[in-house]
Design a binder for these strands. Structure first.
Lengths: 236, 236
DNA sequence: ATCTGAAGTCTGGTATATCAGATCCCACAC
DNA sequence: GTGTGGGATCTGATATACCAGACTTCAGAT
């Protein structure tokens, strides 16, 4: 047992580092390739060469293979046995990823509304309040961070580990794109209204309402993303 | 160019085999481990040893590592960098997998109701009719096969590649358990009613109804599965 | 000129070797 | 007895080697 911080020489003990944070080569390759695919830096159907990738990254093929296996399971590439892997990502794929996220987030919002406790509910409301302030002052960085906290808090409140993990994989626009989205005051305002409504529904335990609102929020903000990245429109 | 079948020596040309069907060692390891985990043959938190697994399968560690990477992305195991992988599956995980499938299948049913055409709709109705016949004659094998066709047909009608792929990964009870489920006449009857209602809602284009019914169907039949495998009950 | 197929090349799949972090164990100091 | 630390060992992470299936090319046959 590690001695309690109380009474130890240093009043500030060092926090244990989460093993998940350790970076491994295959993780780096995985993240980098994933980001590149989602940023549209590969054409759909494009064939990727393991040796070439390994050479570009300056590593052996082993971690590259593992990263490709992960991307395959994520559905971003397709592996034809003995033939190689090809990229599977375009606008329709992105649309479906948004729909998947909408389906899962709304399910988790439903459960969060049923399972959230008083203290956690107060915290969620507090986050929503901070979002209102950040929206007023147009603080994009805070908004991005708060947005993350907001959804993360709902995930925890739902007490769903698997679903939360699944959603993480549908999360495909990164901070830089979020920043672009938050540039638009109208979008900021709309997002705030939705977040506020979702928080209220969850805190008051209205599971069905929370579910509907979360779904609409994810789909609508997803469409905003699609318009920015692909510059197009589609019916859902 | 391959000559057209018309006028060729054989009136019946052989269908091109799908490269996906080819079996590779890592796929075998992946499927086998996956089935073993879902069948509860590992304890939650149990540590698995790559070398030991490779030895058991009589293969090297490379395909084992790749299979583990896939399982990790699926959320069935957790990899602690430099420390190894541990099993992540128990009843609560199974519950969440069912919820995930419910969320995704209902989304896809919604889209199918919007997008299905006349001929595909007729086919779906035909499958539902065959299910009614098979239910009457208690033909478990046909029911299992038809059930697969039914959902598969809905997936295709929704024209969603990514979502369909995602759902495949939540599909965790195999034919042997399905057979057990279909042993119960009451369960067969209930499933038939649900399938019939879903088919009707999709064919008539009532997207919201199709969505609700699909969700209830997946959750309810999932609970039946949980009761059989884990012998327990929980509120959703 | 077109088709066939055999040889050469490319590339993914698997096996093996090596490196280094994590864990375990025990001797030694207090 | 307790706790610290050095080293042995285990094991995952990476690199390398090798094999075999898939694709390409081109010569020879028709």
């Amino acid at each position: 047992m590690i001695p309690e911080p109380t009474g130890s020489p240093r009043s500030e003990a060092f926090a244990k580092i989460d093993p998940k944070f350790q970076m491994t080569v295959r993780d780096h390759v995985h993240r980098t390739l994933r980001a590149a695919i989602l940023a549209g830096r590969f054409a759909t159907g494009e064939k990727v060469n393991e040796r070439s990738l390994a050479e570009q990254f300056g590593v052996s093929t082993t971690p590259v293979k593992e990263a490709l296996r992960q991307l395959e399971t994520e559905g971003l590439v397709e592996a034809l046995p003995r033939r190689g892997v090809i990229i599977r990502f375009d606008m329709s794929w992105a649309e479906e990823m948004i729909l998947a996220r909408a389906a899962l987030e709304s399910m988790i919002a439903h459960l969060a509304a049923k399972r959230i406790g008083k203290p956690a509910g107060a915290e969620l409301t507090a986050i929503a309040d901070l979002m209102a302030k950040a929206t007023l002052s147009a603080d994009a960085d805070s908004l991005i961070s708060l947005n993350e906290q907001f959804h993360e808090h709902i995930h925890r409140s739902s007490r769903c580990g698997y679903l939360a993990k699944l959603i993480e994989r549908q999360q495909f626009y990164d901070a830089s794109i979020r920043r672009v989205i938050h540039m638009d005051p109208a979008e900021r305002q709309k997002a705030l209204e939705e977040h506020t409504a979702i928080a209220k529904a969850i805190v008051t335990g209205d599971a069905d309402l929370a579910e509907r609102q979360m779904r609409n929020h994810v789909v609508r903000s997803g469409e905003t993303y699609l318009n920015i990245v692909f510059g197009n429109k589609k019916d859902i």
